[in-house]
Design a protein around this nucleic acid. Structure first.
Lengths: 159, 159
DNA sequence: GCAGTTTGTTATATAGCATTACAATTTCGC
DNA sequence: GCGAAATTGTAATGCTATATAACAAACTGC
């Protein structure tokens, strides 16, 4: 098997169905179906963000910061569904690259607000374009009505 | 925040939507929607397998072994979309607990075939019952037609 | 029979988390 | 106001799942 020049980290690609294997009722399970779809989606995301060291949580953090300037790290952690310490490492990572900065909150001496820098906003704008384009191409496997339906069903399932 | 008695390992639960946060167009992205749904699904899986040290890959391996007795470790790795070494550790884990065993393949001195033991089959039967039940309850957020449609769309997306 | 490939295996490294503990600060009960 | 409890950010530590690389044994093609 030929290896593509790995830009960074693991590249799951999509889990191919293997010839001659009996998958039994695995296909009936939501978890399995979701995972396979998610891996395929992640592949599209990877292509969209090739070159940058962006992972889905990092991208999500950028989007959340853009939409909620001054959000606290605890709140960010809650949004991402991760522990405070995880949000902190994320904030560290963003800050080290000059994509975001912490500013003291005047009304609370403990808390720091997170803000995108100009550089962060610029990167996000670029990423958004690419991610959206790849997401669109990825979604082109479905008809427009199917796409909307899928998003609706997923939301219902996750809620 | 109260802690439920954690049986083992992390418990992501579901990522709650946080009051007052602007999610912007995150909701339009398949990756984000898939992840949220998958986390919710994983929670159902966790409840279904509480008490046993079963993870999704382990469960998948059990199902695949049951449906494909004598499968090689390489093939198992391919089915799971993981590296050979990962399949090996999985096989080790199953063997150490007496759930599966390796038997030499007569026609190939390198390869070992994997087989469920009686204990493994028994455990799988029990797990299947629970997982299916929880998957069903999880899927009850959707109407039967919606469930079928969702699985169809996911398969189309993952293919 | 020899070169190259495949299988299982081991060792090692890494990323992404969670957990725990702690100091500074705020809020709450009274 | 004052002390207790909670909250925020932080640092240290560890764990789990996984990939990668290197290797021996066995197989395949020529």
């Amino acid at each position: 098997m030929k290896k593509a020049p790995t830009s960074r980290g693991p590249r799951p690609g999509s889990i191919a169905r293997v010839e001659g294997i009996h998958y039994a009722d695995l296909n009936e399970h939501f978890g399995y179906a979701l995972k396979r779809a998610q891996i395929a989606s992640f592949e599209a995301f990877s292509r969209a963000t090739a070159g940058e060291e962006i992972t889905p949580p990092r991208y999500t953090a950028l989007v959340i910061l853009a939409g909620n300037p001054g959000i606290s790290q605890s709140a960010l952690g809650e949004v991402l569904g991760t522990a405070r310490s995880g949000a902190m490492m994320l904030a560290d990572w963003l800050e080290q690259r000059g994509l975001a900065e912490r500013r003291h909150k005047p009304e609370d001496g403990r808390a720091w607000g997170l803000f995108l820098t100009a550089k962060g906003e610029k990167l996000l704008k670029k990423l958004k374009r690419n991610v959206r384009a790849h997401d669109k191409r990825f979604g082109d496997k479905l008809a427009p009505a199917e796409r909307r339906e899928l998003l609706r069903l997923l939301e219902k399932l996750a809620g």
